[in-house]
């Protein structure tokens, strides 16, 4: 049955009209999952689900661009409200955090900094994003003062603003703002449920928050090694194997320099503006 194009007008054939009518009933309705999936993938909406952590159950919100928010689990309505206020986007509840993302978060919390977790930080200022990126460089089991972050991002006088930016960190734990402490060495504030949570998390990461604060109260801001003549932040990993008899606490970088110590190239201690934070 060969039909030459242009010879016959198909629509002139009444059975063709009947076929057309039958075919026109084949319209289908998109599954209800399609619209949310498109909006989440394009970053116009987020999904959220709960996830366990050292400080209890968390709610994690994410979209096609990355993780957008981490919060302590409360009731869903309260979370959706906070999420909307923070991101301006609707959030759809999901049964669970996707396995790959959950695995990546678990590895990151376990100290593996190589694992890649995309973050959706749209709507936040470049300064805030600089601060959070810098906090990401602090290894598990170590802390740095606000002033260090400020100096490292090239805004040494913006210590207080660094504190504020860390307080606004939308993805605590993933961006480890808990590893940034006050310039005087005390633990400082924490957005994810207050300072006691910060202590818990730091202790989980192998630090001794009480000992840290005791040392800070004694005025020990930095620790030098008498054999290498290098001075570090107290939690710097390079100082971990230092013999106790070589330990030399310092009140400031100037004191250390006066004693003939040079700053560690790994933890890069800086003279911080202590009064500001």
């Amino acid at each position: 049955m060969t039909i030459q194009p242009g010879r016959a007008n198909p629509m002139a054939d009444p059975t063709t009209d009947a076929f057309a009518a039958a075919l026109s009933t084949l319209g289908a309705v998109a599954p209800p999952t399609l619209r949310p999936a498109v909006l989440v993938e394009t970053g116009l909406a987020d999904r959220y689900a709960v996830l366990d952590s050292p400080v209890g159950t968390l709610v994690v919100a994410w979209n096609g661009l990355g993780v957008a928010m981490v919060d302590l689990a409360g009731d869903a309505a309260a979370f959706e409200g906070r999420h909307l206020a923070l991101t301006g986007r609707p959030a759809f509840a999901a049964a669970s955090v996707p396995e790959r993302l959950a695995g990546a978060i678990a590895r990151r919390l376990g100290g593996d900094r190589r694992v890649r977790i995309d973050l959706d930080l749209r709507g936040h200022t470049p300064f805030e994003q600089d601060v959070w990126r810098k906090a990401l460089e602090i290894p598990r089991g170590e802390v740095r003062p606000y002033g260090w972050v400020a100096a490292e991002i090239g805004r040494p006088r913006a210590v207080r603003a660094v504190g504020t930016a860390l307080g606004h960190n939308p993805v605590p734990l993933i961006v480890p703002c808990h590893r940034v402490v006050r310039t005087d060495g005390s633990i400082g504030q924490y957005s994810l449920g207050g300072p006691s949570n910060k202590r818990t998390i730091l202790a989980t990461e192998g630090l001794d928050p009480e000992a840290m604060e005791d040392a800070a109260r004694r005025g020990e801001r930095l620790v030098g090694c008498a054999s290498t003549r290098i001075v570090c932040w107290p939690s710097c990993r390079t100082g971990r194997h230092m013999l106790e008899r070589n330990r030399r606490p310092f009140r400031s970088l100037a004191d250390a320099a006066a004693a003939g110590y040079r700053p560690c190239k790994v933890c890069r201690p800086v003279a911080t503006i202590a009064s500001a934070a």
């Binding site: 319209g27 289908a28 998109a30 599954p31 399609l34 498109v38």
Partner: peptide, 27 residues
């Protein structure tokens, strides 16, 4: 969404493939 899903469904025949194609097209 309905027409893109319909086109994909009638061309591919499989609802899951069709949903994926329609979703991907919009993204």
């Amino acid at each position: 969404q309905d027409r893109l899903y319909t086109i994909a469904l009638r061309v591919l025949g499989d609802p899951r493939d069709a949903e994926e194609a329609a979703q991907d097209a919009l993204v």
